[in-house]
Design a protein around this nucleic acid. Structure first.
Length: 703
RNA sequence: GGGCGGUUAGCUCAGUCGGUCAGAGCGCCUCGCUUACACCGAGGAAGUCACAGGUUCGAGUCCUGUACCGCCCACCA
């Protein structure tokens, strides 16, 4: 805040003069202050011990005006020589720093205010004035005396009450404190010994920084709501502290029965710090306490590492001799769309109940988790919430399709099983392979507290792989013309894979996954509910999936995408069926294609057949699509083909650009000699692939 | 003043061990009501990864510095 800095002249007593002597009219020391109303509480003036300007004044006495008190000039290295005048008045009863300075120099502490922040009798002529009036009057009086030397604008930090916005006045009060240094030491020890670790780890620095510089914790609060401080006072002022809930009964010192309990309550963070064990029955040796303490993961926002996490750790170590938790996972703060931290005080919070009414609890959860990189704040606005709602909707509709597509030959209570290998087609191998990869990656992400990553993996797996491709491929194998056994097997794969996704997604979207799962076939060892069903780790998917067939399908998917791309670029009517001649480099690609010919037809809107000779002839009326191991020629009109030339030219340019880059890399001897062989081999393979693709495209352009 | 973090596509943000990392969602553009889903589908455009140096065969990624932005702490009166 913008305030003022006043420079005020104090008059020195003559060297060696008795206290109370007339001060010198011209020998003075000038101090700077932002709070002149506290002058009446001054009990010293401090200068830096190495400050030549004041060296000879140390030990002399100065007269505090109006109260006419004589106080010493002391040397203390807390003083900043460059600030103000280099001399500072010391008011131990009304300033934190001055209190400590006063302690170091045995200066008296004179409280000059009342609880209502007006001046008390110690303020001499100003007694009875409010602190604001007092400031004005003192400044007037100083000016009149000629001792107000300078006034400067000054920017400074001023503590204000969060509720009333009043300036906080430091006071001397009798309060309860906890000596936390030894507790802090044990909390830090738990982290040093890795009994507790922070995720992300960088917050450990914040934690240590605070605990290493901790000072006694004032736990007295003048509030009604809270744990009452268990201290009782007798009329003589003796204190009796007890853990007996009804009180001590008698004063420990004078045996008086007349006891009153301290009116104060504990700091709310003191009570909150007891949470990890007090909720489990402590101090009793309860079953819950033995079972669940220490707990595994403490999750909270990084803004309360000091307030809460550190307190739980200090109190936990001190009272139970154990760390309260093994891992502290710190999430970021939620900000509003304008980037401001959401807080109850600011009133810019999203009401989760309203959001849930609108988009569902699961969508809200997904949005929050999907946006939560560890420790990083996130802005939460409508678009992320809508995306999450759409995902829930997508999952729901996919499940609806699967449930509705169940072949009639399967009994109602059919168990969830993976069909035998001979009933699996290439597409089934592909989705089983993709599903396995997603489960493996999502599981690793969860285990590493990468929750946003886990949701991203599952989102892609379910939407882009399962829905966009596998569902479409499975539709063909669910058709009426397909053999019943194959149809049933296809459906079992659909259900099996969906089941796996649901299990993985359940922690994030518990309601929708539970609901869908309840309608799917189960394994014999599954319970009634998903929430208690087994976590799907390494359950045979890897061995079930034939990776060669899966790779072949991946190539076919790539080819379909390129055919769609070519059609769109050439401006072919979407409804038009085109003849397509395909050729493949590898025999297993041909086999996979033959199994999926109907799928290719459906998805690319072509009538595909395999070319008699690989690499076939060129055609003036063919759209050509080239991928690493395959090629497709779509029969179109000559005009369409001409329109398409640009696409091929662009593709060639891109391919050649990458080719040049890889070739340059391979020509670099330091690269080939210093980089790991696996990297170099990878680049070589890529170079060969690019060369092949470029050659193919060029051949067709030349035709 | 101290500490920490951020700066990557129009927007909001991922990118963990330096090498298929130039990515996602939203938005935008072009198509499409194909019987799970228009809260959808197909295709597309779009980034000098804040700036300047350095290390390295190779740098959003590691180091140093700079500029902005944010957060926490704090007793220069």
């Amino acid at each position: 805040e913008q305030g003022k800095l006043w420079s005020i002249r104090y008059h020195l007593l003559p060297q060696g003069a008795a206290p109370g002597s007339e001060p010198s009219p011209d020998q003075t020391i000038t101090v700077a202050t932002t709070r002149p109303e506290t002058i009446q509480g001054d009990t010293g003036v401090a200068v830096h011990p190495d400050d030549d300007r004041y060296l000879e004044l140390v030990g002399r006495m100065v007269r505090i005006p109006f109260v006419e008190r004589d106080v010493p000039i002391v040397a203390d290295d807390f003083v900043e020589r460059d600030f103000g005048t280099g001399a500072v008045k010391v008011t131990p009863a009304h300033d934190h720093t001055d209190f400590e300075t006063g302690e170091r120099h045995s200066l008296p502490r004179i409280d000059i205010m009342t609880d209502a922040a007006s001046m008390n009798a110690n303020a001499g002529p100003y007694a009875g004035l409010s602190r604001e009036e007092c400031r004005l009057r003192i400044l007037e009086d100083l000016a009149a005396a000629g001792d107000l030397v300078e006034v400067k604008e000054h920017e400074m930090a001023i503590g204000r009450c969060q509720r009333s916005d009043d300036i906080v006045e430091p006071r001397l009060k009798t309060q309860w404190f906890i000596q936390v240094k030894p507790m802090a030491e044990r909390a830090m020890q738990a982290v040093r010994e890795r009994r507790t670790r922070f995720v992300p780890e960088r917050f450990e620095k914040v934690f240590f920084d605070w605990l290493e510089n901790i000072y006694d914790w004032n736990v007295s609060r003048q509030l009604w709501w809270g744990h009452r401080i268990p201290a009782w006072y007798c009329p003589k002022g003796h204190v009796t502290v007890t853990d007996v809930e009804t009180g001590p009964g008698r004063c420990v010192e004078c045996r008086s029965f007349e006891l009153t309990q301290d009116d104060d309550t504990f700091d709310t963070w003191f009570s909150s710090g007891l949470w990890p064990f007090s909720t489990l029955g402590w101090p009793d040796d309860s079953h819950d306490l033995r079972t669940y303490y220490p707990t595994q993961v403490m999750e909270t926002g990084h803004d309360i590492i000091f307030f809460w996490v550190a307190r739980m750790m200090m109190l936990g170590e001190w009272l139970t001799d154990e760390e309260p938790f093994r891992v502290v996972y710190l999430s970021g703060l939620i900000r509003d769309p304008y980037g401001k931290k959401m807080s109850k005080t600011k009133g810019n919070v999203i009401d989760p109940l309203l959001v849930m009414d609108e988009i569902g609890a699961d969508a809200l959860r997904f949005a929050l988790i999907n946006g939560a990189a560890p420790g990083a704040d996130q802005r939460l606005g409508p678009s992320r919430l809508e995306g999450a709602r759409n995902f829930a909707n997508k999952l729901w509709n996919a499940a609806r399709f699967v449930l509705g597509a169940k072949p009639s030959e399967l009994p109602a209570d059919v168990a969830l099983t993976l069909p035998p290998g001979d009933l699996l087609g290439p597409a089934e191998h592909w989705i089983l392979s993709r599903c396995h990869a997603a489960l493996r990656d999502a599981d690793a992400a969860y285990a590493g507290f990468q929750f946003a990553e886990a949701t991203r993996i599952l989102h892609t797996a379910i939407w882009s792989e399962y829905c966009d491709w596998y569902l479409e491929m499975a539709k063909v194998r669910l058709g009426p013309e397909v053999a019943a056994g194959v149809r049933a097997a296809t459906w079992q794969v659909l259900a099996w894979v969906l089941d796996r996704y649901l299990r993985m997604l359940h922690p994030v979207m518990p309601h929708i996954t539970e609901e869908i799962w309840g309608r799917l076939p189960h394994r014999p060892d599954d319970g009634d509910m998903l929430i208690t069903a087994a976590w799907p780790v390494d359950d045979g998917l890897a061995s079930a999936a034939d990776e060669r067939q899966a790779a072949a399908v991946a190539d076919i998917i790539e080819l379909v995408s390129q055919m769609r791309n070519a059609r769109a670029d050439a401006g072919i009517e979407p409804g038009t069926w085109l003849e397509a001649e395909l050729s493949f480099d590898q025999a297993d690609r041909v086999a996979a294609f033959e199994a999926l010919a109907d799928v290719v037809a459906r998805l690319a809107r072509v009538r595909p057949r395999v070319a008699d000779s690989p690499g076939g002839g060129t055609d003036a009326t063919a759209l050509v699509v080239v991928s690493a191991g395959a090629e497709a020629r779509l029969t179109v009109t000559a005009e369409d083909r001409d329109r398409d030339r640009g696409r091929l030219e662009k593709e060639l340019a891109e391919t050649e650009k990458m080719l040049v880059a890889t070739q340059a890399q391979l020509a670099n001897h330091s690269f080939t000699s210093k980089a790991p062989a696996s990297i170099v081999d990878g680049v070589r393979a890529r170079e060969a692939e690019l060369r092949a693709v470029a050659a193919r495209i060029r051949a067709h352009l030349d035709a």
